[in-house]
């Protein structure tokens, strides 16, 4: 089985968000980057499937060279090789076009990625890639098994989950608890250094969106503290002051 795992390189969940260049560039200074947490789940499940059933895992990233440490980490966790499309991603459509282009050349059985990136939170790349390749896509997938060329999987739906079965190839957007995150071991880290990381140039895509500016939410007002002995007052305040009841 050939598995493609697409990963994002995103600021750590605790990173402080700020912008430079007149609010048109994200301020990377002092920000720790990580593999997108949802992509990490996708990668972990891919490694488990490979360990159980054999096959190969290719990691794909659309981004610039500063993502290479995260790509190496994915190789250390258990991917066999990696492809980086060397470009600054413009938007979801652009990224999906690059992924679809790579996938068309390699015919993967399974294309996994996180349900969304935690920087732009669109949650649409898997659907775009699926449609561009003319194969089914599903998200958010929280359980996945492969048997005889078929995927048996569970999707989270409003207030519950549904169990589905579909024939490969498929594109799946993943989330917990599909697998436990994996931490690379020393052997993995050593072998990752020599695993192939191929850098390719992007295909051209029509200009769909362009960034005007970034902004931050208005600062939150003071928290109004209510003494515990007057806790009941909260209900009155929610009715008359906040007007949310």
């Amino acid at each position: 089985m050939k598995i493609l795992v697409c990963i994002t390189n995103v600021p750590d969940t605790t990173a402080k968000i700020s912008f430079t260049d007149n609010n048109t560039k994200f301020n990377k200074a002092g920000v720790q980057y990580i593999i997108g947490p949802y992509d990490d789940y996708a990668l972990a499940r891919a490694v488990e499937l490979k360990e159980a059933q054999g096959g190969t895992i290719t990691v794909l990233h659309v981004g610039e060279a500063d993502s290479d440490p995260q790509i190496r980490k994915a190789l250390a966790i258990g991917a066999d090789d990696a492809i980086r499309v060397n470009t600054e991603p413009a938007d979801s459509y652009y990224v999906a076009t690059q992924i679809a282009h790579i996938a068309q050349q390699n015919s993967y059985d399974l294309i996994l990625m996180g349900r969304e990136s935690i920087d732009f939170n669109s949650g649409v790349v898997h659907g775009l890639v699926g449609e561009m390749l003319g194969i089914p896509s599903f998200s958010p997938v929280m359980k996945l098994d492969i048997k005889d060329g078929k995927a048996e999987f569970a999707r989270e739906i409003d207030g519950g989950k549904e169990y589905l079965e579909a024939t490969l190839p498929l594109v799946l957007g993943c989330q917990e608890p599909i697998a436990e995150w994996k931490i690379p071991n020393m052997r993995g880290i050593m072998t990752a250094r020599t695993k192939p990381l191929q850098v390719v140039e992007p295909v051209s895509v029509d200009d769909m969106t362009s960034l005007e500016s970034y902004s931050l939410p208005a600062p939150k007002g003071e928290c109004k503290m209510i003494p515990v002995e007057e806790a009941e007052k909260l209900i009155t305040l929610l009715r008359t002051e906040a007007k949310v009841l």
């Binding site: 732009f120 769909m208 960034l211 005007e212 970034y214 902004s215 931050l216 939410p217």
Partner: peptide, 17 residues
């Protein structure tokens, strides 16, 4: 205008398609 960084910021984009 859309929310980014899981609600910690916003981006205003021009949609051209």
């Amino acid at each position: 205008k859309r929310g980014i960084y899981t609600g910690k910021a916003f981006a205003t984009v021009e949609v051209k398609s």
